[in-house]
Amino acid sequence: MATATSLPADRLLITVAPTGAETLKDDCPQLPTTLEELVATAVECEAAGAGIIHVHIRDAEHRPTLDLGRLTDTVAALREATTLVVQLSTGGSVHDPLERRLKVLDAGPDSCSLTMGTTNFGDDVFTNPWPFVCELYQLSQERQVVPEFELFDLGHVHALHRLLDSYGLPYGGRVHCDFVMGVPGGMPGTADALVAGVAALPEAVTSWSATGVGRSTLPVALAALSKGGHLRVGMEDVLTLRKGVPVESNRQLVERAAELAVLAQRTPMSTDEARVLLGLAG
């Protein structure tokens, strides 16, 4: 794996994914779905040690949306209230059409998610055909938006090799990935699966993080820390702190990640350091 930056080796990037597109507000009232709730969450999570916020938005009825006006307003509000790297999801919900997902970059985020292939997603299918992946990647290069390559399976790691070989490095020159593990239909949320995924990464990769969905949250986090990786946490991925104990706020999950970092002798990155890591500095 390539050397990313001159940052101290003990630095840990914490990404918070506060909302997602799957959980209903009626089922989880504490989920931040309004702009005001999202901004308040972002402020709390930055103070707790997050460097990136991975954003899905909702409409006035709390349903997932890719409305460009709402996305643009969200980016502006988060930049006004925090110094977090603002990363918009280009996945939206599994039902969003490809052409609307491409329009997400029109909102001008710092970063965007870029999923490297189609995967079964519970009872649904998260569609990412190869021509779409290539078009979104080239658009991110053109718009100077840093992609985070989302890897749901080992085949997605192979696809990342193919993408970089075909179209070169992303804007900023860094290659940051996130293993999304434990989704029904994707790779399991186990240490063995993470080790295999990291071993298969392209040499051009400069940093990687991991996300464990549901019960795999802590096993994946501990495995990622032991391998020198970074963490994504948040209510998009898990809604309980432990069996029978619901998450009350995303801040709790960021704080827990920061506590794990202390045990692993890692220090949460500042937002300035996160920008250096991703090639956004300057």
Rank of each mutant, 00 (worst) to 15 (best):
S226E: 14
D165I: 01
M269E: 03
D27S: 14
A60R: 13
R251G: 00
G197N: 08
Q141Y: 05
D26R: 13
P202R: 05
Q138F: 01
E37L: 05
Q138S: 13
P268D: 09
F149N: 11
V55M: 09
V145G: 04
L88I: 10
E22I: 15
L88C: 04
T267A: 09
L241C: 10
E80N: 07
E203I: 08
A200Y: 13
G186K: 05
K25P: 03
V183F: 15
N120V: 13
E36Y: 03
A40Q: 01
S166A: 14
E248V: 08
K243D: 14
T127H: 14
E44K: 12
G279W: 10
A193T: 03
V195Y: 08
F152Y: 15
S207T: 08
S226D: 15
Y171E: 06
V85P: 05
C112D: 08
L88P: 04
L71A: 00
F152P: 05
R70H: 13
A2C: 08
T74D: 06
D124I: 00
V157S: 01
D59G: 06
D192Y: 05
A200E: 10
G228E: 02
V195G: 00
A50T: 11
G282S: 12
V262W: 05
E148K: 06
H158I: 13
T206G: 03
A40R: 07
L66T: 09
A193V: 03
E142A: 14
G108Y: 04
A191F: 00
L98A: 13
T74M: 00
L13R: 04
A191N: 07
S166P: 10
L260E: 01
T119K: 02
H176P: 10
E37N: 00
A40D: 04
A199F: 05
P131N: 05
H156S: 00
G214V: 12
A204E: 14
A21P: 06
L278N: 03
V276M: 09
S93R: 11
P64Q: 10
G186L: 01
R101Q: 02
V220C: 04
P246T: 08
V16N: 03
T34Y: 00
T206Q: 03
P18A: 06
T118M: 01
R162C: 12
G172D: 01
L194N: 05
S140V: 11
E37R: 14
G186Q: 12
E22A: 14
V238W: 10
D237C: 01
A2K: 15
M187W: 15
I52F: 00
P188L: 10
S140H: 05
A191V: 07
G49F: 01
C45R: 02
D272E: 13
L218M: 15
E61K: 15
L260K: 08
A223M: 05
V245F: 11
M181I: 07
D165R: 07
D27L: 13
A77V: 04
D272V: 12
L164I: 13
W208E: 03
T119I: 14
